[in-house]
Design a protein around this nucleic acid. Structure first.
Ligand SMILES: [Mn+2]
Ligand SMILES: [Mn+2]
Ligand SMILES: [Zn+2]
Ligand SMILES: [Zn+2]
Lengths: 135, 135
DNA sequence: TATTAAATGATAAAAATTATCATTTGAATT
DNA sequence: AATTCAAATGATAATTTTTATCATTTAATA
């Protein structure tokens, strides 16, 4: 269990209980949607406002503290920003897993064959996760 | 200029003027957002309903006639379904270009190293397009 | 041309997101 | 420890986005 107090402050964000709870949830769950994050927070705070969730998600995104992951045919999930990686999205349980794949070959190919100046590459692979395959 | 009348009917969709206009717009523009599609349609039909846009987009998506492309930090665009391909998204002009990249090596790698059963892979590369680089 | 299921347009309703603002609070300062 | 104050929260209104409803129209078939 990481303490995000200092890390929040480094991003010029006050370490409020709500933010610490949000970051902890993102840390433990990995990838969380807005609605499930809100449900989780309501359990911890008798009266957290949905606006607080949105305001923090947006603010932390601006500060590159967290990132949105857009999944085809499903709701977005959010995660703590970490080293660049790709995602496996299960179409059955809607779970999202991290996977580290070297996309440099692809990036190089695009750079050589097009005039596009690449900033980042986002890969989402959809399918059935290990757990959902048996059933 | 392709005539989509028969293609729509093959998908069990009536070839209404609105649908023909939508498909033509997707064909000529390539990738269009809901709001710009609506603006374009309003020019052609004095009183097309936004609901008609949504209903058609959703229906045609179910029939795999068109597809949604989710772009990081930007609104989704829609395109006519065609051979699997990836996308270059310009963060400046918000334009989206097609690019054909062989993702089989990556898919094979994932298949070998994980227990994930892959259905599809979606790659969106963000950066600055050729046009936007000069300015 | 008549028939009919499907599509459209108008609009209400619902869902998602943002804005506003009085109150509270974290963190720095004394 | 008490004071200060910008920032954050919560309540809620407003806005935006998307879906539902339904009377009317229309594409397709006969
Ligand atoms: Mn991730
Ligand atoms: Mn495309
Ligand atoms: Zn699963
Ligand atoms: Zn551009």
């Amino acid at each position: 269990m990481i303490n995000y107090t200092d890390i929040l402050r480094e991003h010029n964000l006050k370490a409020t209980p709500q933010r610490l709870a949000i970051t902890n949830e993102l840390y433990t769950k990995g990838h969380v949607s807005i609605e499930s994050l809100y449900e989780l927070m309501v359990k911890k705070f008798n009266s957290i406002s949905l606006a607080t969730i949105y305001k923090n998600i947006n603010l932390m995104q601006k500060n590159s503290f967290i990132q949105e992951v857009k999944i085809p045919q499903a709701k977005s999930v959010y995660e703590l920003t970490k080293a660049s990686h790709s995602h496996l999205a299960c179409t059955k349980c809607l779970g999202v897993e991290d996977i580290t794949i070297d996309l440099n070959v692809i990036i190089d190919t695009i750079t050589k064959t097009s005039s596009f100046k690449i900033d980042s590459a986002n890969l989402v692979v959809s399918g059935i996760c290990k757990n959902c395959q048996r059933s």
